[in-house]
Amino acid sequence: MASKYININLKIWRQKNANSKGEMKTYKLDQVSTDSSFLEMLDQLNEQLINNREEPVAFDHDCREGICGMCSLYINGRAHGPDNAITTCQLHMRKFKDGDTIYVEPWRAKAFPVIKDLVVDRSAFDRIQQAGGFVSVNTSGRTMDANAIPIAKIDADKAFEAAICIGCGACVASCKNASAMLFVSAKVSQLALLPQGKVEAKERVMNMVRQMDEEGFGNCTNTGACSVECPKEISLDNIARMNREYMKAMVTAE
């Protein structure tokens, strides 16, 4: 593909730290290759800012191949920008036109406070996992043979499709209630679908949901924006499955 170059205007959320007030600031950036990723475009902006002795824009990123879940960004009103099934690092500038104005904001949710500029604190997700997102099995090398329990391919595949959640938080950011149901249900589903996870299924769903509520995430109203904007296309079926698991645990509680 022959690359083209475009000139763009950027409106970016700048905020010194968690305690200060933020604002949208305007930047002009020329000669952006359409082959660049969105984050490479931000690198280019930062290079320009550094050369002008201005403070570069802070944003989270790491693997730049759509799997670590570190990058975020609300771009033109959409989590991970104007494309489906991608993270921001997989968004390319060929999705924009010469002269476009692009709005870049951090995730907006009470449970994800801004740390600086576009960087937010997603440690609430970690705490939900710590409350129950695991099978309580110690390291031993003496568990049973991996093939001792056959698992129907369809269940293994469904568990995998839930397990590919990257924990980026786009679901929360896209939800009008800032609900974390899609994220939590993905882990609950993965383990509920596998025999290894069934033993602690009740405690898991109760504990994870309790922690989710304590973190200040909103409630689910079945709008489905989360799944639409999810870079890994995690299905709403997982929320339904989690609700069933939760009901089951409530009804059969000791």
Partner: peptide, 9 residues
Amino acid sequence: DQCVAQGVP
């Protein structure tokens, strides 16, 4: 064995 026991799909 360990990973399967942990629920790795």
